[in-house]
Computed example of a mutant assay.
Amino acid sequence: MGVQVMSSPHFLVVLLAQIVIFWTKKTIMADSRTPSDMSTALLISVDQSGHGDYKKIQDAIDAVPPNHKELVYILVKPGIYKEKIVVPADKPYITLSGTQPSNTIITWHEGGSIFDSAVVTILASDFVARYLTIQNTFGRSGKAVALRVSGDRAAFYNCRILSYQDTLLDETGRHFYSNCYIEGGTDFICGDAASVFEKCHVHSTSEVGGIITAHHRSTPRENTGFTFLGCKITGSAGTTLLGRPWGAYSRVVFAFTSMSDAILPQGWDDWRDPSKQRTVYYGEYKCYGPGANRAKRVSWSRSLSTKEALQFLNKNMIGGRGWLRPAPTHFKKFYTINSEKTKENN
């Protein structure tokens, strides 16, 4: 009898309907966390002198209730903030902003694991950073991440990201970097994210054998890759390569990018695994400068045609039109958060 019920068309229809309802409810719940007003943010100030809501950046982040439903704008007053920072996954829609990167600096000194050494770790979605310097001062003796980005839909504007090895762990998700300065020597932009770097300055501090990118992408089905649009690459002459494959299907494209003589003529490396030459996707399109000369490039890199390059010349890979947002224009006092939290507790 039980077998007959389980196999009946009516039962299957009911089961399918229940599954649809379940996932619809989950989608509605997820969508309900999206702020209804994207122009107004709750304002929290951080000031080391004690004239803000908090003296430490992490304390300000900790004060934000989990799964809050409004934009939160944390304004960091000028200063050198010696602390490690984590934005947890249950705190989306946070903006962390300084006034200018030269005077608003987050710094720490730690090497070792690429996951644990990061000065700033972003696990939340819909995060924005503006006008900050994020620096790991560990030096050249090992892996030392300045910024780890592991949340989806993260954007960074006019930030400076500094270390030597694995400076930017662009781990997973869709990300956008605009007018940022990124500095390092070995694999200093690495990870498996889908990211667009627009008008960024990439500077190699390597003296020999430097590598800019180490993109992962382990299968051709992953829609990930690093795209550099209208960027600038500098460094000491003949000291660095554009990239090498952390994963077999590593994908990196440079377009309309100024390349100084820091770039070695061969351009790319297979990380001592010739089999990856058949699977990586390393492309260049209308780049210029002495480092952009492709006469001696490795044969398995690509000089892209306009048709091939088109998919990389916009933000479609990261779906940018759907989530990139301007800075808020209206602000509410931080006590609004505390008031709502108090009401819930009562």
Rank of each mutant, 00 (worst) to 15 (best):
A144F: 10
K55L: 04
A194P: 06
R321N: 06
N345G: 12
T137Y: 01
I74C: 02
L123Q: 13
T24H: 15
Q18I: 13
K296Q: 14
C190R: 14
R251W: 08
E340F: 04
K307R: 08
P66A: 06
V120T: 12
P326Q: 05
D269I: 07
F197E: 00
L169G: 14
R160L: 13
A60N: 02
I212L: 07
P78N: 09
S250F: 09
K315G: 06
P290F: 04
R140K: 11
G112C: 12
D269G: 10
A262H: 04
K56E: 15
G52I: 00
L242T: 08
N316W: 02
I114N: 03
A124S: 12
A255I: 07
I134C: 01
D62H: 03
F256T: 09
T227R: 09
Q266F: 11
I263F: 04
D166A: 14
K332L: 03
R297S: 15
R251F: 15
G209F: 08
H330Y: 12
F115N: 07
L147F: 05
K232C: 01
V20E: 00
V20T: 11
Q165M: 06
I318G: 03
S301I: 02
L16P: 05
S8R: 15
L75I: 06
L15Y: 07
I134W: 02
E222R: 12
G238N: 14
R153Y: 13
S218D: 11
L168V: 11
D152E: 05
L12I: 11
G289A: 01
V46F: 05
I233H: 12
T342G: 02
L264V: 10
G267P: 00
H68E: 01
D187A: 06
F176W: 11
D31G: 14
K82N: 12
A154Y: 04
D116E: 08
I61G: 00
T137Q: 00
S36Q: 10
D273H: 15
R174F: 15
F115M: 04
T342R: 11
I28W: 13
G291V: 04
Y288V: 10
